[in-house]
Every structure is written in C-alpha cells, then in structure tokens.
C-alpha cells in the first residue's frame, strides 16, 4: 500500500510539469491545448536521439533539448496558432488536436512503433521504509521539485511572470498597461516548451519511449489542471499530485487499464461541485 502510494507520488510529480504547462497555456492563450501530450513525445525522442544514438549523458541532452524545444514551440505557435488568434475556442482546440496527430506521427515515422529506452546506467533499486525506490524516481522527484520552484519564482518575482499572470487575468487591460501580448505569448511557449521537454524525459524514464507515450497522459494532465483550477500554478501541482496518488491507489481495487477513469471522475466532480477547481482564480472573467 505504501509502495503504491509512493508510486502515485512519482506519477503525480511526473504529471505536474505538463499540468503546469496546460494551465499556463490556458491562462495566456485561453484554450485547452491538446497537443501537449504529443509535444512531450517529440521532445523525449529528441533527447533519445542525443542520448541513445549520439551517446550524450542524459542530463546535458535534456538541458540542450529543453531549450531547443522551447524555441521549437515558439515556431510551432507562429505557424499553427498565431494565424488563428482570436478565433473561437473550438477552432483552437481542433487545431491543437490536429497538431497532436502530426507531432505524434512524426515521432512514429522517425522511430517506429517499438518501444525504446534512454541509455542510462542501471542502478540497483534501494529500499527506504519498506518501499522500493530506484534512482530514476529520485531524479524525477528532485528535478520536478526544482522545476516547480523555478516556476514559482518566475511567476511571482519576475516581470515576465507577472505579465503572464496579468495577461491571464485580463488580456485587454494588459494591453493598455503596456504589455505586448505577442511577446508574452512567445515567452509562455518558451517556458511551456521547457516544461514539456523535461516532462517528456521523465515519462520516458518512468515508462518506455513510444509514440503514444505523451498522448496517454493528456486526459490525466487535463484532469489535474482542471481539478487544481485552470490558470493556477499551485492548482496544477495539487491536482497532479492528487490524481497521481489516487490513480495509483485505485489499481489496488480496479483493473489498472482503467486508470484514466480517475481524472474523468475528478473532472465530473469538479464540474458539478466546484467549476473553478481547488485553487481556481477567485475572479474569473471570460
């Protein structure tokens, strides 16, 4: 039971980064972006290329890809979503769905359907308090904690972060307060790209690398973001942890293939009882 809870903790932590990405994108761009799963997949494969094919150690490979992927996301936005700015939410959602297909299948085209893994040294798992943990999980926890701290600092202590929150709060007011919305959107994509790249690597370490690896997390990640409250970074974290732990614990009583039901139930509960989620913005203006 404790083991399952720990695994849930790790799952939750893995989901936090993409949940943060989802919530940031929703706040600034005002629509749910279904391509985030496939974006994680592509980034993970990019790291795979550097790591397993070119022999780079995982850490520098991730760092380089993360920054490159941030830039790539900006480019993708310019090509795909920028021409659609101002169109309705559904248009953007469908575009993101299409983008997701394209990205996932680029990965499939390049690497086929067989599962791959990163080239990392095998380390023996160790036991702590009767719970088996391995080195990858420790790295995951540490890396995510670092990423979350940096995100929090960014959002609360830097002008860019404040501007992102301002645009999420009131895009028109942000304009007349001198905030250039396109610039902020580019920054948001850059940061989101980094979050998704690292998230993809964490998934690749936890499970295997295969084309649907990221898309499998889409419903869960959105469930986490909605549970926590779309637009709230703290909510993304809380939502991800809750969904992660509950999903793992649910395998004790339910067949594991239906874990996806947990975020669905969470979304249903949120919609019925508290649409703004746990930490959703108290003042919402559509």
């Amino acid at each position: 039971m404790l083991q399952t809870a720990f695994n849930g903790l790790v799952t939750g932590v893995i989901m936090t980064l993409p949940a943060l990405a989802v919530t940031l994108l929703f706040g600034v761009l005002k629509f749910p972006n279904f391509a985030v799963g496939a974006m994680m997949t592509v980034a993970a494969y990019m790291v795979f290329a550097l790591n397993a094919q070119l022999g780079w150690p995982l850490a520098p490979a991730t760092a380089v890809v993360a920054v490159a992927f941030g830039g790539l996301c900006i480019a993708i936005d310019q090509l795909t979503f920028k021409p659609l700015r101002g169109r309705g939410g559904i248009t953007l959602m469908v575009a993101s769905l299409g983008l997701g297909f394209v990205l996932e299948n680029i990965a499939r085209f390049a690497y086929g359907n067989t599962a791959r893994s990163f080239a990392i040294e095998l380390a023996r798992p160790f036991r702590f308090l009767d719970v088996r943990m391995n080195r990858e999980q420790m790295i995951t926890l540490a890396l995510s904690a670092l990423a979350m701290t940096l995100m929090w600092l960014l959002l609360t202590r830097t002008p860019v972060g404040r501007a992102m929150r301002a645009v999420a709060d009131n895009p028109q007011l942000a304009l007349v307060r001198g905030i250039d919305s396109e610039r902020i959107i580019r920054w948001t994509w850059f940061i989101t790209g980094i979050l998704l790249a690292v998230g993809g690597v964490l998934i690749g370490m936890d499970r295997a690398l295969e084309p649907p690896m990221g898309s499998n997390y889409v419903v869960g990640v959105f469930g986490a973001a909605i549970l926590g409250g779309l637009g709230s970074a703290l909510g993304a974290f809380a939502g991800a942890m809750i969904i992660g732990v509950v999903s793992e614990l649910s395998t004790l009583v339910m067949p594991p293939n239906y874990r996806i039901g947990i975020p669905l139930v969470a979304i249903a509960l949120v919609l019925v009882f508290r649409p703004q989620g746990l930490f959703g913005q108290p003042y919402i203006r559509k």
Partner: peptide, 26 residues
C-alpha cells in the same frame, strides 16, 4: 494612458503587483 470603466485592475494580482506591472511596462 487609459483607465477603462470596468475590470480596470488585475483582480487576481495584489495591489503592489498591479503597480509594479504598470511601472515595468508603461
């Protein structure tokens, strides 16, 4: 400079943050 009639502050940000944004970006 322009002050809209409604929704003229960032409600989910603090007073200080509102002022800082104005200072940083205007």
């Amino acid at each position: 400079a322009y002050v809209p009639q409604e929704y003229n502050v960032f409600r989910n940000l603090t007073v200080l943050e509102n002022l800082r944004i104005a200072h940083e970006f205007m």
